[in-house]
């Protein structure tokens, strides 16, 4: 039973770390601020959530796990808001979409 729990914790930690790495590489590789916010908000949230759950499981106490889980919930509630605000601020400041962009309904709205 102990070894099973340790295995689950190890897998969660490694996968969480991989997603955090994915967020970091995404921020470097993607072309503009909007697409970068995608990487930061999604992969970053899942990476840190998995590691929090791993920490909660490893403690073996329900109280610690409940707190870790509450942390996950707050992550899910707040990370999208932050990403939204960064993207909206960038758009209002006039930051263009990358060259491959297909359409920009928001700029069209501002023109009309």
């Amino acid at each position: 039973m102990d070894i099973l729990l340790a295995l689950v914790v190890a897998v969660l930690l490694v996968v969480g770390g991989l997603f955090a790495l994915l967020a970091a590489i995404g921020i470097v590789r993607l072309p503009d601020v909007y697409t970068r916010m995608h990487a930061a908000s999604k992969a970053g949230t899942v990476g840190s959530s998995l590691m929090l759950v791993a920490a909660g499981l490893h403690s073996g106490e329900f109280a610690t796990f409940a707190r870790a889980f509450a942390g996950v919930v707050f992550f899910i509630l707040t990370a999208p808001v932050a990403a939204h605000l960064v993207a909206k601020a960038a758009h209002q400041a006039g930051y263009r979409l990358s060259r491959g962009a297909v359409c920009d309904d928001m700029r069209d709205k501002a023109k009309n």
Partner: peptide, 18 residues
């Protein structure tokens, strides 16, 4: 996200839709 970011050439068509 995994597919987009780790692929050798990033193949996306970004845009803002209503």
């Amino acid at each position: 996200m995994l597919r987009y970011v780790y692929s050798p050439r990033i193949d996306i068509r970004p845009g803002i839709v209503k």
